[in-house]
Simulated assay, not measured.
Amino acid sequence: MPGDFFDDQPHDQSLAPGAIILSGFARPIDSGLLTAVAEVAEAAPFRNMTTPGGWRMSVAMTNCGEAGWVTDRSGYRYDPRDPETKTPWPAMPAVFRDLAARAADRAGFPGFQPDACLINRYAPGAKLSLHQDKDEADFGQPIVSVSLGLPATFLWGGTTRSERPRRIRLTHGDIAVWGGPARLTFHGVDTLRDGDHPATGPFRYNLTFRRAR
């Protein structure tokens, strides 16, 4: 299908060998997930980080788990402490860890035990450019990415940034999992449109589970 249109995904959708979207997988426990997001954000508030090039990211972020992904003028990295408070990131809620393990298992990656969860909060106008998740120590572990709230256009590219990405509509409760031969695929999120979701209001939340160390 041409990249200018959304892919139709009424059921779980295979993106490539090692990559799949589990449609609505997280929806049955969405209230518990959002309660946990609020608790994490109370301890480690959302913030708009700065890239090494000095650009302020449009997506607000926080973390939980043994390490958190951060970016600033010194580079991209995982840090066991919140750089703003110098204290450890909040512990990963059990509801997070269980969901990530179940989703990875269904996608063909049994035994996944994430030690980091990056929580992104998108407001209308926010986006995430094409990138690879490559700051982790072990690329043999998958990425589990949970969508909550407003729908978004997921950009699924290729092995180079120049490849034109597919445009895939993600809705509340969808989970994208990729690993194995798809682990370093370029991906991103197109500019979020205005909206009002009954569970999250004007926001979209994305929980990205990784094995950082």
Rank of each mutant, 00 (worst) to 15 (best):
R213V: 08
F186I: 00
A137H: 09
L192Q: 07
G188P: 06
A199R: 09
L184R: 11
I119V: 14
P93N: 03
I143D: 00
R211T: 05
P202D: 05
M49L: 15
I29A: 10
A137R: 15
G149N: 04
T71Q: 14
A38E: 15
A41I: 13
Q141Y: 08
L22Y: 03
G179V: 04
E163A: 07
R213A: 14
R121T: 06
P114G: 05
P93T: 00
G111I: 06
Y76A: 12
G173T: 00
R97M: 08
G75D: 12
L99H: 01
R183T: 02
L15M: 12
L22V: 08
S74K: 14
T159I: 04
R27C: 13
T51L: 12
N120I: 03
G75Y: 08
G32R: 13
G149P: 03
E163T: 06
M1C: 04
G195Q: 03
D72K: 07
D174H: 09
W178Q: 02
D133P: 10
F46H: 08
Q13R: 13
D196S: 08
G54S: 11
H187L: 02
A104G: 04
A101T: 01
S14Q: 14
I20A: 02
F5Y: 09
T200F: 13
R77Q: 10
G65M: 09
G111V: 06
P80S: 09
P110K: 06
E42D: 15
F5A: 09
A94F: 08
L155I: 00
S14V: 12
A60C: 11
R121G: 03
P88A: 12
G3R: 06
H131K: 09
L148D: 03
A91P: 05
G195V: 00
G173L: 08
A107Q: 03
R211D: 07
G108S: 11
T85C: 10
I175F: 14
R193W: 06
A41F: 15
T208V: 11
P165I: 00
A101Y: 04
I143T: 03
M49Q: 14
V59I: 14
D8M: 13
Y76Q: 11
F139C: 14
E39H: 15
A91D: 14
D196L: 13
P142Q: 13
L34D: 10
G180K: 07
E42S: 15
P165W: 00
L33I: 06
V37L: 12
D196F: 11
P45Q: 07
R56V: 15
G111M: 11
L155Y: 01
L184W: 03
P45D: 07
F96M: 09
R211P: 03
I168Y: 01
T62H: 10
F154Y: 11
W89C: 07
I29H: 04
P17K: 04
D135S: 12
E42P: 05
Q141S: 15
T35I: 14
P110C: 10
E39W: 12
R27P: 02
D7G: 01
G125K: 09
L130F: 05
N120Q: 10
A137D: 15
D79T: 00
R183W: 13
N63Q: 07
N63E: 10
T185Y: 06
E136S: 04
F25W: 10
P114M: 11
L34G: 08
L33D: 02
